[in-house]
Design a protein around this nucleic acid. Structure first.
Length: 695
DNA sequence: CAGTGAGCGAGCTTCCGCTTGACTT
């Protein structure tokens, strides 16, 4: 019978700990939060004391039951949820639930900063109590997010369409994407000119470019310079050689892993996380289950002492002493708490090289694992060294026309050897000041200034992280939400705002400028730090926040009609065929539609775009068959008399009589082996040849 | 492989952050 109970968040972690602690311990996982605000209502007394009314999550009932059962059989209970704000709240909630059922069993809080037998033993030997300040900071964070989300989203339902949403994180992400689009639209392309030269010395050709500090936008201006120098001698006026060290990259954390997986493999953040989770939970290797990487939701780039030692040993034995990074590398991330809940994302066992795992795990898993493995090993490999040479050439008697260029040579590959890539060398001849070089070719090149690029998953996540908006567990879901709400579409890797996304951003940002300011979250974090340090009372912070917000909410509500009329609904020149009132374009759940301005007394509506006609008559009612889209965006064909007539087809109809049963139309189906036809009535299929023969 | 689908007008939508499953066809 187990006498001690330990509760952690992740089931995988629980399994590992069980292995360390052995008999005498029962280890259970809460699988994240067990309590939260109710989904169906605000759950906060906004006119009272702002205490959040957390309820037990439905899908955690069984887990909590198991925890309390096990608790009643234990002499002592340790709660080892993650050592951070959310983890502390989880600990508090677990404690509350246990205390409802089990009395007189001591409940302790333990903090694991690392999952190693020594660290775990140390943590259990030094238990503490729940840190109320951290719990309060979580309450503040949670209530603020709920208040923002649940009081602003309904405004969108009233003004645009039901089902829409707004939030501290998603609306800022949307804002970034939309404002970038506005910048692109406002961008004015300018043309400017440079002169590119190919030179030669000692049989080596190289490139130098004349690019004046002030851009030359007039063609005749550059032509004048060109004419002036085109036949002149070119002399080396400057030549410098520098050795530079290139630092190895830091190990991966969630955000950087998502960025690279997107950039290199085109994986969406969602897919990356699914794959990483599989690597974390473990893969069957030679009949044994083995977790291949450390936890994948982390904002830390710290590596454990033990891991550093192992990886350095690996580097020494595989690449030699010369490649092992000396001294201790600081993994500090801009003064952030290095003692966070998790390590960087790294392989659990560096000796399991990608080569070893080849053929043992799925292709995509191997791709991601390779990335993680290489990056972790590279982070402890020596810097690379390059020799960089830069030169300036000037045409004879024209010292202002400087042709500049750079050469580059990798003299020590260092960590590049682990990554399997290296910067391309650019070779230059040896030169010294005063040398003359041979002019091979000079030409004017037209250049254009470029607008800023649209965000991709990778660049959006990078920006959000830099702003401190969102957490490792939310980067992927945030982008998914924007796409689900139809605020944003992803094409290839690029994120484009939709018309709806722009509308939502334009309605919200000017009316709630501080909340949807890109720096709001960073400011909030400073306040939360004060709560965590015990310097601020969380309730007064939230009260003050809400008092300010309330004014803006009221303003918005007072102006709903006006906002709708001036910013959302578009008036048409057309009159309603039923009542003669003007028609308008409104927003619905599935996009825009045309409706009568007299709603609700007149209920006339029609789709904004007439569905495309196929020219084929409906075999049931004689109406027209039109091309439509279902709510998933897939096309199908249906009778234009819907809902009176419910005839539908999944493929394009053609007015050909079925050779078998005489049904008036056939479906044209594009299969893998070519096009064939099928009768919707008798279901028989016909090849193109058979159709031609039967006429 | 086959084959469903659409309503935008009265009962519900929505937030962020922690973590992983699963009533059956």
């Amino acid at each position: 019978m187990a006498k001690k109970l330990l509760i952690v968040e992740s089931p995988t972690k629980a399994k590992t700990l069980k292995g360390y602690l052995g008999r005498g311990y029962s280890v259970l996982a809460s699988k994240g939060h067990i309590k939260d605000l109710p989904k169906s209502k605000m759950g906060i007394d906004l006119e009272g004391d702002f205490e959040p009314h957390y309820i037990l999550l439905k899908d955690k009932r069984n887990i909590v039951k198991k925890i309390t059962q096990e608790a009643s059989r234990s002499n002592i209970i340790y709660i080892g949820s993650d050592p951070d704000r959310e983890g502390e709240a989880i600990a508090q909630h677990i404690k509350e639930e246990i205390e409802k059922k089990v009395k007189d069993v001591p409940i302790k809080r333990v903090l694991f900063y690392e999952i190693t037998p020594e660290e775990v033993r140390h943590a259990i030997k030094n238990p503490t109590t729940i840190n109320e300040n951290l719990v309060n900071a979580q309450k503040a964070r949670r209530t603020l997010d709920r208040i923002v989300g649940y009081s602003i989203s309904p405004l969108l339902w009233k003004v645009i369409a039901k089902g829409l949403s707004a939030g501290r994180v998603q609306t800022v992400a949307l804002r970034l994407i939309c404002e970038r689009e506005e910048k692109i639209n406002a961008f004015e392309k300018t043309t400017y000119y440079i002169i590119k030269g190919i030179f030669e010395k000692d049989g080596i050709k190289f490139e130098g470019v004349f690019q004046p500090a002030k851009k030359i936008e007039k063609k005749d201006e550059i032509e004048k310079i060109f004419e002036d120098i085109k036949d002149k001698k070119f002399i080396v006026s400057e030549y410098t050689v520098k050795e530079k060290h290139i630092m190895p990259p830091l190990p991966y954390k969630t955000s950087t892993l998502q960025q690279d997986a997107s950039r290199l493999f085109g994986f969406s953040p969602k897919r990356t996380m699914r794959l990483a989770q599989m690597l974390y939970e473990g893969v069957e290797i030679d009949g044994k289950n083995k977790g291949l990487i450390t936890y994948m939701r982390t904002d830390s780039v710290r590596l454990s002492e033990k891991a550093i030692k192992k990886i350095k040993e690996y580097i020494k034995s595989s690449l030699g002493e010369d490649y092992v990074q000396r001294g201790k590398r600081s993994f500090k991330d801009k003064g952030k708490n290095v003692q966070g809940a998790h390590e960087a994302i790294r392989p659990t066992d560096v000796s399991l090289t990608p080569e070893v795992l080849k053929d043992k795990i799925d292709k995509d898993l191997l791709k991601l694992y390779t990335l993680i493995w290489q990056r972790s090993v590279a982070s402890l490999t020596k810097s690379a060294k390059i020799r960089e040479t830069s030169f300036v050439l000037i045409p004879d008697k024209a010292p202002d026309v400087k042709f500049k260029g750079k050469g580059r040579e990798l003299v020590f590959d260092g960590f590049y050897r682990v990554l399997g890539t290296r910067p391309q060398d650019v070779l230059l001849p040896s030169m010294k000041k005063g040398d003359e070089v041979k002019r091979v070719k000079l030409e004017i090149e037209e250049k254009h200034t470029e607008p800023p690029p649209r965000y991709t998953d990778a660049t959006l996540i990078k920006t959000l992280e830099q702003l401190g908006v969102g957490r490792p567990s939310t980067y992927a879901p945030t982008i998914s939400t924007l796409i689900e709400r139809r605020y944003v579409v992803r094409q290839k890797k690029t994120l484009y705002p939709t018309e709806l996304g722009m509308l939502v951003k334009n309605v919200l940002v000017p009316r709630f400028p501080d909340i949807f300011d890109v720096h709001f979250t960073a400011k909030m974090e400073i306040e939360l730090d004060e709560i965590e340090n015990g310097n601020t009372d969380w309730k007064s912070l939230i009260k003050e926040f809400y008092e300010r917000l309330k004014v803006k909410l009221e303003d918005f509500k007072d102006n709903i009609k006006e906002i709708k009329e001036t910013e959302v609904v578009e008036k048409l020149d057309e009159k309603c065929p039923l009542c003669g009132a003007p028609l308008v374009v409104k927003w619905g759940k599935y996009g825009k539609f045309i409706a009568c301005s007299n709603y609700p007394s007149c209920k006339y509506t029609r789709p904004l775009q007439e569905p495309e006609k196929t020219g084929v008559k409906c075999p049931l009612c004689g109406g027209e068959i039109v091309k439509k889209k279902n709510r998933k965006g897939q096309t199908f064909y249906a009778c234009s008399n819907y809902p009176k007539c419910k005839f539908t087809l999944s493929h394009e109809p053609v007015a050909i009589k079925c050779p078998s049963c005489g049904f008036p139309i056939l479906e044209k189906i594009k299969g893998k082996k070519g096009t064939y036809y099928r009768c919707p009535n008798c279901k028989k299929t016909f090849s193109e040849d058979e159709i031609k023969k039967s006429g």
